[in-house]
Write a protein that binds this DNA or RNA. Structure first.
Ligand SMILES: NC(=O)c1ccc[n+]([C@@H]2O[C@H](COP(=O)([O-])OP(=O)(O)OC[C@H]3O[C@@H](n4cnc5c(N)ncnc54)[C@H](O)[C@@H]3O)[C@@H](O)[C@H]2O)c1
Ligand SMILES: NC(=O)c1ccc[n+]([C@@H]2O[C@H](COP(=O)([O-])OP(=O)(O)OC[C@H]3O[C@@H](n4cnc5c(N)ncnc54)[C@H](O)[C@@H]3O)[C@@H](O)[C@H]2O)c1
Lengths: 255, 255
DNA sequence: CCATCTTTGTGCACGCGTTCACAAAGACAT
DNA sequence: ATGTCTTTGTGAACGCGTGCACAAAGATGG
């Protein structure tokens, strides 16, 4: 899950629930597919199925945007596409900067799925001097030294961090100082940002661990009585018991 | 956000809230960092700060696991690392298969952060015959034809899908048929799976769109009276108004 | 113009998750 | 042993999100 900072209580204007905002892109995707097939209208039931949600939830979500449906008929696809796009701010162009052009950063830069939704990769930034000038996905990588200027010149307000975890906070600070107010963080790091800056994180490792939890539970349901009793925890580690030489996966289970 | 299917109401055993499960990896990461610095104990306050959550929430989360803290002192770092690891099923090895070795799939394969937490990339699978045999991250890519056998032979129960969206459902079906019961999906597709299979999705595009929404809201707060009135929606599109030649970003706003 | 039928929009109840606030537990000093 | 001080574990209140169920809206046909 991604974490949205700045939980401003929707002071002004009609406040759209955060959960609804998170689903709007889902609806938009389903609607775009329908639009490409030239389907003129959809019922909440059909669209909900396509988006993988409950139809009542979908209708309630749309009700926050206004009354855009026609009873007895459904929703006009093209009209709804426009309304949701406008609500999400997708009618305008969003220049995005990616910082840390390694495995992941390069993959993102090469990904064509952004441009189709108003996001434009405006700059690629890396600290490695050897990379400066190298074109990735048709864009020359620029050096971190110029980060401030690059952000300003391109009017970037959304930054993507794909640096190693150790560099993430520093990069984040520099981005914020340069004027970035929204950050998508792929580094497994808790970023601290000033009020008014939104941070969302994508954490692969966490997703896998959640899957592992459920996977283990499924497996354990079939075979409750196992060899090593999982209910008997090892003795509490004495504070003296240090970790292994590597520091990863510490050898607990002492005495 | 990722979507967990199979909302079994925690029939048996003490049910740990889903929200808590999602935070355990966060705590584990913070604890591991402390462990590497040989810190013997932490208070809920310190650990909560490190993990970026509320201390009361953290204590309540831990209370679902049992009483592992010591009042007046805090939690034993090593002991807690072990308890959380065990709860998440990280004490055992999880062979993972990645299907679709393109930009993203290759990046994931090259990522070292999985192995450190009990996840092992056991197989790379792609439909492109030209890729078969090619080593990526030291592992030879195998062809989709052998998917079934590969999954079985390696005892893979967790699959990662990084194919184009059009192939995702088909790949998903094949993985499930082969015995996979947990899927991490990067393709922007709503996967339908049988009961008992967990699906989590990571959707870059959605994350960016959520950021754009808040970004637009921030910008709109400063300048309410603007050129084109954002409150006046265009006339409803007639069903006849088709989309542009490309099909993306339809030219709404007719007459 | 009226009847019927489909589908929206929403009031309401419920359950989950978050947060506060505090009693109790235990470490530590004297 | 006793008192003090720190920190946990949790009861309780609250707020948000979800889903049911239905009245009202409007299309459509006669
Ligand atoms: N690759 C994956 O699949 C994956 C999965 C999950 C998480 N992550 C996380 O994403 C991040 C990037 O992963 P990766 O595999 O691409 O790593 P990588 O090492 O391939 O790339 C990191 C890049 O960041 C650059 N960099 C380092 N310090 C920098 C700085 N201060 N400013 C700007 N650039 C800097 C490096 O030069 C390098 O090009 C890591 O934090 C990793 O934990 C990656
Ligand atoms: N690259 C990114 O940064 C990014 C970001 C967001 C989402 N995604 C999504 O991730 C997926 C992969 O993206 P990508 O950029 O790596 O694409 P890609 O085209 O580089 O890679 C796709 C790979 O899947 C393989 N493939 C195709 N059909 C297959 C099948 N039926 N079975 C097995 N393999 C098959 C192809 O041979 C190719 O190697 C896409 O769905 C994309 O929308 C990617």
């Amino acid at each position: 899950m991604a974490t949205g900072r700045t939980h401003r209580p929707a002071t002004r204007s009609r406040g759209i629930p955060e959960a609804t905002v998170a689903r709007l892109p889902l609806y938009l995707r389903a609607l775009t597919a329908l639009s490409e097939r030239s389907v003129p209208t959809v019922s909440s039931e059909e669209l909900a199925t396509a988006a993988g949600v409950n139809s009542a939830k979908l209708r309630k979500d749309f009700s926050y945007l206004g009354s855009y449906g026609t009873r007895g008929v459904g929703y006009d696809v093209e009209y709804l596409v426009y309304q949701i796009s406008r609500e999400l701010g997708l009618t305008q162009d969003w220049p995005v900067a990616i910082v840390g052009i390694g495995n992941l950063g390069a993959a993102l830069a090469n990904y064509g799925g952004f441009a189709s939704r108003g996001f434009r990769v405006a700059a690629l930034i890396d600290a490695d001097p050897a990379m400066a000038g190298t074109p990735v996905a048709g864009i020359a990588v620029q050096h971190t030294d110029d980060l401030d200027r690059i952000i300003s010149d391109n009017g970037v307000s959304i930054g993507v961090i794909t640096t190693p975890p150790g560099a993430a906070q520093q990069v984040c600070d520099r981005l914020v100082a340069a004027g970035v107010t929204s950050i998508l963080n792929f580094a497994p790091t808790v970023l601290s940002v000033p009020e008014g800056v939104d941070v969302r994180k994508v954490d692969l490792s966490i997703e896998l661990q959640i899957l592992a939890f459920h996977e283990q539970r499924k497996a354990g349901e079939d075979a409750p009585p196992e060899g090593d009793d999982p209910e008997a925890p090892p003795m509490r580690a004495t504070p003296a018991s240090r970790k292994g030489p590597d520091g990863d996966m510490p050898a607990v289970m002492p005495a």
